[in-house]
Design a binder for these strands. Structure first.
Length: 551
RNA sequence: GGCUUCGUAGCUCAGUGGAUAGAGCAACGGUUUCCUAAACCGUGUGUCGUAGGUUCGAUUCCUAUCGAGGCCA
């Protein structure tokens, strides 16, 4: 019995009451079924009587009485109680609750899958860090969260393209190229340029891997060589880091290609036809105020250079032309101010902001040392890259730590703490629970406990009821994680499952004690053990974290 | 000044229009002849930043305000 099934049973009971004429009501398609905090309040509880009582012209408790007597007839519901202002507390029979273990094992890796986003084509753009340096902690957070979100979307039926936008056009790239040139010539970095060991390395590699004597060229030509080769090397390094982090993008999109293909001109032309472009002071503008922006935006400056938004316009149009229903952008809080103009350009194309284009803003990652915030600065050598983090804590712990908090909160990362007390990390708690399920199953086989028998009524221990109830929530948690774009819900959920599994393990043996015979209860428990294994494994997979067989 | 995120236990953070608000860490104590002790059990702390409002019911929604971070001017 899952909460969804109970919700269906309640809806069916309401329909029956309406059909019988004892209730006048528009029956909703689903109702809230929750696990009460206090177990005396039943295995599950619903607040429908308080939600719908007034609509049906009844006092909540009277409504509850009526519904309760109808629910008594449902199979699997053992007892119905009415409490407080009109809560309906449901008690489920052990066999109906235990049946879930078989459902989960049968579904296997598919357990928890949904169809909510069936047929939806989603373009999920995340990280998109400039190729002027390695990926920092902030970008690493988006890599972990974004990839997990993509997995969640896929799990509920969506077709997801993971996309990375390389800003390889514009002033920042010019500064990067000048910095490489300066490094190659052993000159100090330009005032507004980039420094750091990676600049030296890349400059050295460009020199080593290029046949020509770049440094004997005039500066502007040499700088162009460094730009082309340096950006390419930076691309490679970023892709490699991401790959080692377990994140592989389907599309690495180069901003520069939008200019080379004249896509920028074409999209401006398109907007001009739609009447949203004007010229003033020698510049080309988008009339974004017509779509809720607080001022109009320059697309092409009076000197002929494109403003940053020019690429965004062409890029969005490109994504839509590739057939994506939803283009989701994950941006850092420092880009918050761009949201209105992005939404305006979406609307200018005649699309629906918030639907065809959706922007998720995530808060920053702070570096903390010994409880004190450390400002990340290249000069002070306190920049932490994705590679640094992985070196210190490993991919699993890094991804888990970054993906288990809401992106609405800024996140403090304390490297010393992560180094020193690796066991504090909840990822080990969850992984350990998973490894335990595997070892228990292995031992069961060698001791003659098999899955030839399944009698759900035997799963009657308190710890089994708790574990089953938690397992039953997985599909709903996945659906919510997708709906709210919050993959951290998966992490918090599997921590709860791991806890209830550990408690169950302590109380209920799958293999009999030495000398005792294998009984039905042992075989049945093997099903529950394997069900827990599946839910933990599926949850970890959605986070992109490995589910070890042993630890 | 405008926009925005956050404010919950000593620390790091979950959560929710419902019944007695949670977890991990940290502190103290306990559990192992037998499936993984990276586990389990027990002990305690909260004006859910503050003030109003909506509601049968608000920590959750709305408004104002204070504080912290971010972007913009």
């Amino acid at each position: 019995m899952t909460p969804n099934q109970l919700s269906e049973a309640i809806v069916a009971a309401l329909r029956a009451l309406v059909a019988a004429g004892s209730l006048e009501l528009e029956v909703p398609s689903e109702v809230v079924v929750e696990r009460p905090k206090n177990r005396e309040h039943g295995d599950w509880a619903t607040n429908v009587a308080m939600q719908l009582g007034a609509k049906a012209g009844l006092k909540p408790r009277d409504f509850a009485e009526l519904l309760a007597s109808e629910l008594q007839k449902s199979a699997g519901i053992e007892k119905v109680e009415i409490a407080g202002p009109g809560f309906i507390n449901l008690f489920v029979s052990d066999s109906a609750a235990g049946e879930l273990a078989r459902e989960i094992v049968t579904a296997g890796a598919s357990f928890g899958r949904g169809v909510e986003y069936q047929g939806l084509k989603i373009n999920l753009e995340f990280v998109s860090a400039n190729p002027t340096g390695p990926i920092h902690l902030g970008g690493t957070r988006w890599a972990a969260v974004g990839d997990s979100l993509a997995r969640v979307f896929e799990f509920v039926g969506a077709e997801v393209t993971r996309e990375y936008y390389f800003n390889d056009h514009g002033a920042q790239i010019d500064r990067f190229a000048r910095s490489l040139l300066a490094a190659a010539k052993n000159e100090p970095a330009p005032e507004d340029g980039y420094s750091g060991a990676y600049i030296q390395e890349i400059a050295a590699r460009v020199l080593a891997e290029t046949a020509e004597e770049i440094l004997s060229l005039p500066d502007d030509q040499a700088q162009e060589k460094f730009r082309a080769a340096g950006v390419e090397l930076m691309f490679q390094q970023i892709r490699e880091s991401l790959h080692e982090f377990g994140v592989d993008f389907d599309v690495y999109f180069h901003e520069n290609s939008l200019y080379e293909s004249k896509a920028v001109e074409r999209s401006i032309e398109r907007l001009r036809e739609m009447g949203h472009i004007f010229e003033e002071d020698g510049a080309i503008w988008l009339r974004s105020t017509a779509f809720g922006d607080d001022r109009d935006r320059v697309i092409i400056k009076s000197d002929g250079d494109a403003a940053y938004i020019a690429g965004d316009i062409a890029y969005y149009q490109d994504k839509r032309s590739r057939g994506f229903d939803r283009c989701i952008y994950m941006l850092g809080a420092d880009h918050h101010g761009y949201v209105p103009r992005m939404m305006a350009l979406c609307a200018a194309f005649g699309d629906k902001p918030g639907e065809n284009m959706e922007i998720l803003i995530g808060q920053m990652v702070n570096l903390v040392r010994g409880g004190e915030p450390v400002r990340m600065s290249k000069r002070a050598g306190t920049v932490v890259t994705m590679e640094d983090l992985v070196d210190v804590v490993g991919v699993d712990a890094a991804r888990y730590a970054l993906a288990r908090s809401s992106i609405n909160s800024s996140l403090d990362v304390d490297l010393e703490q992560l180094t020193k007390k690796t066991n504090d990390n909840p990822v080990f708690y969850v992984q350990y629970a998973h490894a335990r399920t595997k070892q228990v199953a292995k031992n069961a086989v060698s001791l003659g406990v098999d899955d030839s028998e399944f009698d759900p009524a035997l799963l009657s221990h308190e710890a089994e009821a708790e574990l089953l109830a938690n397992l039953s929530e997985f599909p709903r948690v996945v659906a919510q994680a997708a709906q709210f774009r919050e993959p951290h819900r998966i992490a918090r959920y599997i921590e709860v499952v791991a806890g209830s599994y550990h408690r169950w393990y302590d109380n209920c043996r799958v293999t009999p004690l030495g000398g005792q015979e294998v009984e039905s209860v042992h075989r049945t428990r093997l099903w529950l053990n394997n069900a827990a294994s599946i839910v933990l494994g599926n949850g970890l997979a959605l986070l992109g974290v490995s589910a070890p067989e042993r630890m």
